[in-house]
Design a protein around this nucleic acid. Structure first.
Lengths: 238, 238
DNA sequence: AAGTGGTCTAGACCACATT
DNA sequence: ATGTGGTCTAGACCACTTC
């Protein structure tokens, strides 16, 4: 493990278990350098990770402090996993994820998909339309477009399990990032039927463009969530 | 301006105006060091900002590349402002923001507010309840709790303009970060009346804890958005 | 084997806050 | 004046990709 990760993990642990409490001042960087027997840049990097994560703040001239976080807020920050995909996200919590496949076809990308995936006009994509269930209850409707040349050999059986696993394990590709956009709408008849809610019930919509570590787009997805299972959490630093 | 910011700004500009196009390889860090007459760590830092922002990706052993972004996606990334508050966010776009104050009082924090702001039991907070309008049309309902001891002298007139301006300019405090949570709900009668929508119409809800650069909480706010004016965009890196 | 980005160092100097 | 964190350097060595 990298040195800055060790320091990061160690200090984070001390915040979680209460060795460092809310608003408490951490040791100075100088002292942390001695304690961990390392250089200033490395300590700074470890602390910056904690700043990004929302656990601490730094003030030039004064020092470094734990944020004024409630215990619940610390838990929330600690348990967040962002880029794992629907299957992993829920099965890690002991739930069973299943998929009902409504459509699986190869079509020409429409204007929106073409733009989002930055494809040439007339490009073909897999068009996948699934209802994802958690413990047998429908949770989301997912429409996914994947450029055919980036996922050759995609089959129906992959859709019943995890698309992300197929991309990672079978294609050997690495997902690097996702650009997300969240909106809200009323359920239309289709959505209501599939999600087992009433027409006009509120729905959380996540649009997502997913990028590989090559910089190429791999997926454009629109996900429609039942209101009762939709939450999105982020931390914004200045 | 800091050197890494200059390099960051320069390269970002070249991506925006098309000097570097989608999927194109950037010069090697070594060459950028020469070009900008600086050291490796500084170039690396500039590039890492672009990675965080979602514009480029780096691959050890291979090089640095512009992501496969559509022109629209580049615009979206470039125009995002996160921590500015409602007033600034909309008036910068040439719109007029007004506020209707529904409540302004000092009360004891309830359990939720107390937890979110990490206050001691029995603490007092300003309780502010406003409808915010853009160009005369209601856009959001905002309930805000502010610990009284952190914002002494808050008056009604500050609420008609921007609360953030008051915090920044008159109290001389600096906002450092915000922890956000987005959910979805049906409009109840109150919400429908204030937002001028129908009962049970969908509503986007943003809960936000705002922190100062001291690490202290300054605000807990719950914001209810009309569906037609609600969007939230984020970039998730691995 | 050569070249890429990633980590880490030991230290200089700077900007800012406190005393 | 002292001490904090922030920036930057010049270079060593490492992990990984490509040839």
């Amino acid at each position: 493990m990298k040195k800055y990760e060790e320091i990061y993990t160690d200090i984070k642990g001390k915040i979680i278990n209460g060795d460092y409490t809310a608003t408490e001042q951490l040791p100075f960087e100088k002292d942390l350098c001695e304690a961990y027997n390392t250089s200033k840049m490395t300590v700074k990097r470890a602390l910056d990770l904690l700043v990004d994560e929302g656990l601490i703040i730094k003030r030039r001239g004064s020092g470094t402090f734990v944020k004024d976080l409630s215990q619940k807020e610390i838990q929330r920050i600690t348990n967040s996993a962002q880029l794992d995909g629907f299957t992993a996200n829920h099965s890690n919590n002991g739930h069973k994820v299943t998929s009902k496949i409504l459509a699986f076809e190869v079509i020409q990308a429409d204007d929106i998909v073409q733009d989002k995936l930055n494809l040439k006009p007339g490009s073909f994509v897999y068009n996948i339309h699934r209802v994802r269930c958690v413990d047998g209850k429908p949770a989301i409707i997912e429409k996914t477009a994947i450029p055919i040349e980036r996922a050759p050999g995609l089959e129906r059986k992959h859709l019943e399990a995890s698309l992300y696993d197929y991309i990672k394990d079978e294609l050997g590709l690495t997902i690097q990032s996702a650009h997300r956009r969240i909106t809200v709408k009323k359920a239309d008849e289709d959505e209501a039927r599939h999600l087992e809610v009433d027409v006009n019930d509120p729905i959380g919509v996540t649009e997502q463009i997913t990028y590989l570590d090559t910089g190429d787009t791999i997926e454009f997805g629109v996900t429609k969530h039942r209101a009762d299972s939709f939450v999105s959490e982020t931390i914004v630093n200045n």
